[in-house]
């Protein structure tokens, strides 16, 4: 017999089928959130079940640690992943993480969970080859846990409060680490004010992700100009509510990163180069202003494997990228 959430089932298969029937999954099977497992997750994070991780006022939602733990178990997390899941949930449910809009939008925005600090290596979070895709339990289940919280706690259910016209595969799970060992670049969480030894999660809601390929540039300026061209082809409208703190995330790939290393460019150098060029007035429908209020709003993250001369642009939806420490 499998017992979970005060329901008893004759078998694991019966539980999973009932969860499908009740609409408690993302369309994939889940692990049973037994009381014992949920308790173990809470203990690992040092939280009581009633601890409030965040709210979505427009939906009359309050997310507790117990709810997050149940969904983390269901996602397939290990107990040691749960403090990172908690940080991701807290980040996303910050007011300017804007859960209501980013999970309800017609555009089908997704949430990128970017992990920094020692916890990356402790949990085996992939930051190199294949890090956006399948094959890595920590990446897959931490990202899925946040999405199950959005579905089962924050009521982001397709056809209900999730009104996406197409949605995106990134809504199953989108989590990766920064490859902090790739260079002496300041990691993302350090740029955002945390200590290097502090593990952290940054949640960035993205309208879409665009691959900026460039196989022919052989220097930092050439790569930066490609980034500018690709971002401006899409444009970033900016938003009065978000003010000057808006973000775009640029995941700099291995082959592009090499040129920055060779020429000694820091993340700040890249930000300073990109910022005026992104904010320059539009010249055509395919060369649009990308409104980022400050150079430091351009978040540079090193990740990905060797081979492709490409970086990825995570273009924002109506939210700030929020960084939370992993406690």
């Amino acid at each position: 017999m499998t017992t979970a959430a005060q329901h008893a089932y004759d078998s694991y298969e019966a539980l999973v089928e009932d969860y499908f029937e009740k609409g408690w999954t993302d369309g994939l099977p889940i692990m049973p959130p037994t009381p014992e497992k949920v308790a173990a997750f809470l203990e690992r994070a040092g939280l009581s079940g009633g601890e409030v991780l965040g709210t979505v006022p427009t939906r009359e939602v309050t997310c507790t640690a117990q709810q997050a733990a149940a969904n983390a178990v269901m996602a397939g997390c290990l107990p040691e992943y749960f403090p990172t899941v908690v940080a991701a949930v807290r980040a996303h449910l910050q007011p300017k993480g804007n859960c209501h809009s980013t999970t309800g939008t017609l555009s089908g925005a997704a949430q990128a969970v970017i992990i920094n600090g020692p916890v990356r290596n402790e949990l085996g979070v992939a930051s190199g080859a294949g890090c956006f895709g399948p094959g890595f339990r920590a990446n897959a289940t931490i990202g899925r846990a946040l999405r199950l919280v959005i579905r089962n706690v924050c009521r982001g259910i397709p056809g209900f409060l999730d009104r996406a016209s197409y949605s995106t595969p990134a809504r199953y799970s989108f989590c990766f680490g920064e490859n902090e060992e790739a260079s002496d670049w300041a990691p993302l969480h350090v740029q955002r004010g945390l200590a290097p030894e502090q593990s952290a999660v940054t949640v960035h809601s993205l309208m879409k992700m665009v691959e900026a390929t460039d196989f022919t540039s052989r220097d930092a300026v050439g790569v930066c100009d490609t980034l500018v061209t690709n971002i401006r082809a899409n444009g970033i409208a900016g938003d009065a509510w978000l003010g000057e703190d808006g973000n775009v995330v640029i995941v700099v790939g291995h082959e592009h990163h090499r040129f920055f290393n060779e020429e000694g460019w820091s993340k700040a150098d890249i930000q300073q180069y990109l910022w005026p060029r992104l904010n320059a007035p539009a010249t055509s429908a395919t060369d649009r202003m990308a409104r980022i209020g400050k150079p430091e709003g351009i978040l540079i993250v090193a990740a990905g494997g060797a081979g492709m001369g490409a970086s990825w642009l995570l273009l924002p939806h109506l939210a700030l990228a929020i960084t939370e420490p992993v406690s």
Partner: peptide, 11 residues
Amino acid sequence: DYPWVPIAIWS
């Protein structure tokens, strides 16, 4: 090896 990039779009 480098400086030749892995994908052979070379001048």
